[in-house]
Design a protein around this nucleic acid. Structure first.
Lengths: 117, 117
DNA sequence: ATCGTCTATCGTGAATGTACGATTAATTGT
DNA sequence: ACAATTAATCGTACATTCACGATAGACGAT
């Protein structure tokens, strides 16, 4: 099996857990995801990762190249996206392979509906 | 006609404009909305306003009462929600009537899809 | 006219966010 | 071993956020 393909295949979020969240937890979780989305560069990163083909995983260097920011700044944004649950990264030799958390878009959509509706 | 009912009925957002946005504008707009959602107190305010009956408009005082924050802090959060387009307020004598922007939830949902999909 | 109510704004302080260059640590390749 | 590559972390600087008490301004009621 391809090395990149083997990476980044086991992190997913279960939408079922939304039903068990207290209103307080729900708001805190959505606030966190929203913080992750609250910068154009981070939106671009998520968009980029969400549209990658599964068999061509993304390396950090690729993300640095599509953004008009210094490498260290991109690394900070990636760190925020990891903290807030949007993405995760796995070490692949000297590089880091970043992937979007599986099912996160549906999770986010459901979370908004639960919090606001 | 009821005084409160007459207020807050003419501010709406047109989802059509999303189609005309450049990718850059799209990301900036979503980043702004996300910033608005990036605090539990502001999520609670939006939830509260989104579920108000139309004929019982919300006054600022009502919002202060449901949050565990000082009046001035709530006013700041309301200000951020106004800046980011989630809500608007109209002066009603000595009070201010706050309402959620009509159609904003659908707008937000569409904006996310356009930005990330 | 004066008083009380309501809400925005001011001023403050602590914390966080954003961006950069420089450095470090890990790994690969020679 | 050694050099090159990759990405995180450090240190810095500036701006913004968040929370509060205090104040000010607008309006209604008396």
């Amino acid at each position: 099996m391809d090395k990149h393909k083997r990476l980044c295949e086991d992190k997913a979020i279960d939408p079922e857990i939304i039903d068990d969240l207290s209103p307080e937890e729900c708001k805190n979780l959505l606030a966190g995801f929203s913080k992750g989305l609250a910068h154009p560069a981070r939106i671009e990163i998520i968009r980029f990762l969400a549209n990658r083909p599964e068999d061509d995983r993304c390396l950090c260097r690729d993300i640095v190249e599509i953004l008009p920011l210094a490498q260290s700044s991109v690394s900070q944004h990636l760190s925020i996206l990891k903290e807030t649950g949007w993405i995760y990264g796995e070490i692949d030799g000297p590089r880091v392979c970043y992937c979007i958390t599986d099912g996160i878009l549906e999770f986010h959509e459901r979370l908004i509906k639960k919090c606001l509706a």
